[in-house]
């Protein structure tokens, strides 16, 4: 199938994918300007940090989602896998294991779910939609079963560090004895997001696995005939998506300092929307991490701004739903050309 991402005949104009990214970036700026009018508190440093924190979870999911989407697949299980990873880490901490190894095992649990997705898709030849929908039910079910649907709390201060700590935080003691925050610092989750996004972009652009991911999504049969190990490439992408969902789970649960087996419902839709808004094509073969990061911020800002403007949760759902459909519609328009 011939797709056209709209490369201009005029060399000085940006190519299709760059154009898409620029328009997404403009949308983001427009949203920020609009929301700063509707609610004065929107443009504060504190709220900026809140958005950054909220976006870091969507962003981490979107990195893995983008890789999967570029292979021509989809991962509907990330929201549930996020919860299961948190539950695994929480239970292991409760069993007396220190936070760091427990979190590593939580991420490993996420990676395992992704690996199973990959195996089911490649070896059992189940479509990604159905396979990951199944995993969405299974992972959520395990998370709820293991905890009896109850949150796990009192996990200790160390558990809250990843989600609540920050670099370069400056706090002064005031004369009245109360501390005053001079600079709120750069939150760990934001730094983590930047590091993982850079790593993801590096793997996609500079490494063989990235090249193979694009080739599989572009023309699976051609990739196979050229000697690309298609199954291995897909399994790699789903495993990465699962591991990143696990990592996102650690960030989210750490921020709440509680493990909630009910967390992350519908997060997969935010991640898919972020990827597609950022220019990834559900037909496969097209997408970028930088685009998906812009997409993540659009979703994050949209949710936060609607909250600040006092929009009800129901209306928010309606708006995000329309945005998702709109983004996929634009994706199809691009492919039809």
């Amino acid at each position: 199938m011939v797709t056209d991402d709209g490369k201009s005949k005029l060399g000085f104009l940006p190519t299709g994918s760059t154009l898409h990214k620029i328009s997404a970036l403009l949308t983001l700026i427009l949203l920020i300007v609009a929301f700063s009018f509707t609610s004065p508190a929107f443009l504060s440093v504190n709220n900026g940090l809140t958005v950054l924190l909220q976006t870091s979870v969507i962003g981490l999911l979107a990195i893995g989602m983008t890789m999967v989407i570029i292979t021509g697949g989809i991962d509907l299980s990330v929201g549930s896998v996020l919860a299961l990873s948190g539950v695994v880490a929480g239970l292991i901490i409760k069993a007396g294991v220190p936070v760091a190894p427990a979190m590593a095992l939580g991420i490993l649990a996420g990676a395992t779910c992704g690996f199973v997705n990959g195996i089911v898709i490649t070896k059992m030849r189940i479509t990604p939609f159905v396979a990951t929908l199944g995993m969405m039910m299974i992972a959520r079910g395990i998370a709820l079963q293991l905890t009896g649907a109850a949150p796990i709390s009192r996990l200790g201060n160390a558990f809250g560090l990843l989600g609540n700590g920050s670099f370069f935080r400056i706090v002064e003691m005031q004369d009245n004895g109360f501390p005053k925050v001079v600079f709120a610092g750069i939150p760990y989750p934001a730094v983590l997001l930047i590091v993982m996004a850079a790593l993801g972009a590096f793997l996609l652009q500079k490494r063989q696995i990235g090249r193979h991911i694009f080739s599989v999504g572009s023309n699976e049969e051609a990739a196979r005939l050229s000697g690309v190990n298609v199954d291995r490439t897909k399994i790699w992408a789903y495993t990465a998506s699962g591991a990143l969902a696990g990592l996102a789970g650690m960030v989210l649960m750490s921020r709440l300092v509680t493990v909630q087996p009910n967390e992350g419902v519908m997060y997969e839709l935010d991640a898919i929307a972020a990827s597609v808004i950022g220019g990834a094509s559900l037909m496969g073969g097209v997408g970028s991490i930088s685009g998906s990061m812009i997409g993540s911020f659009i979703i994050g800002v949209l949710r936060n701004g609607l909250n600040m403007a006092g929009t009800s949760a129901f209306i928010q759902q309606i708006i995000i739903g329309i945005v998702v459909i709109g983004a996929v519609y634009i994706d199809q328009l691009r492919n039809r050309k």
Partner: peptide, 23 residues
């Protein structure tokens, strides 16, 4: 093999296709 279908990945450029699988 030069396949009748050519077996090229449409989204990649000439060099990426030439070395696909043997980068």
């Amino acid at each position: 093999t030069i396949y009748q279908t050519l077996a090229l990945a449409n989204h990649l450029d000439a060099a990426a296709n030439l070395f696909l699988g043997r980068e």
